[in-house]
């Protein structure tokens, strides 16, 4: 009972997300696997996938204080690994998923061991350099046969049961489960002693070392967990789009993670979740209303949020709660 009460808002949200496809279908009177219900399942599935990507970035930036400009390389790597293995190697999805996890772990270890030797802006630059390298490779015509070069890797053969076109509802629930599991996994980490050490490192790394922590190892762990999660999100994204393309590896994809995290509230886990939903849905809305000029308006929204809600949605919400409690 206590567990249920403590997690009431989360459970309510999960319940709402589970019922959502059916509710839309009831409201619109359209069948659940067509028209408006199908469209909105797709929108939310994308939100769930982006949310995992944003949460993984928040673990790095919001908790451990590691500002990486190369996070997109994990997202893109996940997409390409699953795409190449499904399309060219004929692997099964479970085997390809395992390969995504292992390759992301190897990649993040490599980047971590190299980049974490330096700090601050230097670390940011090293991660950017690695990501740009991957971006260039993805566009290289030498590997066109495997990657599709600048066209991207098209028509990934997603297993029929998970097809985002024909089994949209299944894809929706798989994405939802993926998001919930990732959220709780990261929450387990951030609420564990390891999570507190990460916060301590963010605040003052020397101090954490003076207590006796090998801070390098902790940062490396954060980097590997975040890298694997981002790669899995990239994999889901490729399955959704049925393709992997160089844009997944572009700097703008990293910036997207940064924006989702900051707008939602860095260092909170519900923040990036909200940020992902906000950016994806608002982007869609602005696109419908204003056409291709929408990024311009989006820019204004960003500026307004950073000016008026410097700690993001969750930060603003928490300080409002605190103020109210102090008044009472």
């Amino acid at each position: 009972m206590k567990i249920i009460r403590e997690n009431a808002p989360a459970l309510a949200l999960i319940g709402a997300m589970v019922l959502f496809p059916f509710a839309i279908s009831l409201l619109t009177g359209e069948p659940i696997d067509a028209g408006t219900p199908k469209f909105w399942q797709g929108m939310l599935a994308q939100v769930f996938i982006l949310a995992v990507y944003a949460i993984s970035y928040d673990l790095l930036m919001g908790y451990a204080g590691i500002l990486s400009f190369g996070h997109a390389m994990f997202f893109g790597a996940g997409g390409y690994v699953v795409g190449i293995l499904l399309k060219h190697a004929g692997w099964s999805l479970p085997a390809a998923t395992l390969a995504v996890i292992l390759s992301a772990a190897a990649l993040s270890l490599l980047i971590g061991v190299t980049a974490l030797r330096v700090q601050g802006v230097y670390l940011t630059m090293v991660t950017l350099a690695f990501a740009q390298m991957m971006f260039v490779i993805s566009e290289a015509t030498d590997f066109r046969e495997w990657t599709g070069a600048e066209d991207g890797l098209q028509s990934i053969p997603v297993p029929a049961w998970l097809s985002p076109t024909h089994q949209r509802l299944t894809f929706y629930f798989v994405s939802l489960a993926f998001c919930i599991l990732s959220y709780y996994l990261v929450r387990r980490i951030t609420q564990s002693p390891t999570g507190r050490v990460l916060v301590a490192i963010r605040e003052n790394e020397l101090r954490a070392r003076a207590i006796g922590y090998n801070t390098f190892v902790y940062k490396l762990v954060a980097m590997v967990v975040a890298g694997i999660m981002a790669a899995l999100a990239g994999m889901m994204n490729a399955l959704w789009n049925l393709n992997a393309n160089p844009n997944m590896l572009a700097t703008s994809t990293t910036i997207n993670a940064l924006l989702m995290t900051i707008i939602g509230g860095a260092g909170t886990l519900s923040g990036p979740l909200l940020g992902a939903a906000f950016i994806h849905l608002l982007g869609y809305g602005l696109n419908v209303a204003f056409g291709p000029r929408w990024p311009l308006l989006f820019g204004l929204v960003y500026v307004a949020i950073v000016l008026f809600l410097p700690y993001g949605f969750m930060g603003a919400w928490r300080s409002w709660l605190l103020k109210r409690r102090l008044k009472m």
Binding site: P193, R196, V197, V199, A200, R202, E203, N204, R207
Partner: peptide, 12 residues
């Protein structure tokens, strides 16, 4: 550590 509670500061 300013972002950690008193107890967490000790626990760490």
């Amino acid at each position: 550590f300013r972002d950690l509670s008193v107890f967490e500061n000790l626990q760490i």
